[in-house]
């Protein structure tokens, strides 16, 4: 057998089989002894991850970790750093393969970035998806200026930075079963505008993205690959995009903001 041995923990087995089958030369699913653990991000993910680290496992792909773990990661981060563990986050929206080229296309100055989204997940998790998408697109959340939330909706204004520029980040989410769950980012500048819509389902439905300046609009190419398939391909080499401790601290900072906004009911 060839390919990286991938073991799953809390990740949907059928979905894992589908992913592995689409990467037959690179990945094979194993019951135990995997070189990489593909972990589902359900609420107890820090405990499961810690247990795996303590038995000596070193490489992880953590899928869509739920925001409720915010503020509880100090021990985990410490253990991961001491043990030289690699944890690659895999987030459906932020890791969509369209996000990186979208970010590369952004060269202007922006006053505000709005992200509007809907889905059936808890409000805090949808806010987290938006914060992570913003960060991945180059708009780094700094602090919450104002947040308001209810059982089924939330609106927040944050200070963020785009490179050296300050920019307002506006998040709006609604819980709804109607239509297609997604997040839509629009960057608003005096002379430039850009848009990116990323879907929430695990299918390889391509994001739509454009960049506009002056009299022209550029549409970014369609990419028919899901975030998870793209991340798993990279997981084979496990390139270090961000040291594990730093990635988890950044995630924790974003999750803390998401929970704070969602708590403003």
């Amino acid at each position: 057998m060839t390919g990286l041995a991938v073991e799953i923990d809390g990740f949907c087995p059928l979905r894992a089989r589908g992913l592995a089958a689409s990467l037959p030369a690179s990945i094979r699913l194993v019951e135990q002894g995997g070189e990489v653990i593909l972990m589902g991000g359900q609420a107890d993910w820090p405990e499961r991850l810690m247990a795996r680290i303590r038995v000596g496992q070193k490489r992880f792909v953590l899928s869509d970790p739920q925001a409720c773990a915010a503020g509880q990661l100090a021990d985990l981060i410490g253990e991961a750093e001491i043990s030289h563990v690699q944890i690659r986050l895999c987030e459906t929206h932020a890791d969509n393969p369209a996000v990186a080229p979208f970010r590369s296309s952004l060269v202007g100055h922006f006053s505000a970035v709005t992200i509007t989204g809907q889905g059936e997940e808890p409000i805090a998790d949808m806010l987290m998806q938006q914060l992570r998408l913003a960060r991945a697109a180059g708009f780094e959340p700094q602090s919450v200026v104002h947040g308001a939330a209810g059982e089924a909706q939330a609106i927040a204004t944050l200070e963020a930075t785009f490179g050296e520029d300050p920019v307002f980040l506006r998040l709006t989410v609604a819980r709804s079963r109607a239509g297609s769950a997604s997040h839509r980012l629009l960057a608003h500048g005096r002379g430039d505008s850009a848009g990116l819509q990323v879907w929430s389902d695990p299918a390889a439905r391509p994001a739509t993205a454009f960049y506009l300046t002056g009299e022209n609009t550029t549409g970014l190419p369609s990419i028919y690959e899901s975030a998870h398939r793209a991340v798993l391909r990279f997981a084979i080499a496990m390139p270090v995009t961000l040291p594990t401790g730093e990635a988890l601290r950044q995630w924790d900072q974003d999750a803390t903001m998401a929970l704070a906004i969602a708590a403003n009911s």
Partner: peptide
């Protein structure tokens, strides 16, 4: 209920 009101007038065409 909550209302999100956003407006932006820029210098381009869209």
């Amino acid at each position: 209920q909550m209302v999100d009101m956003f407006a932006f007038m820029h210098g381009h065409w869209r």
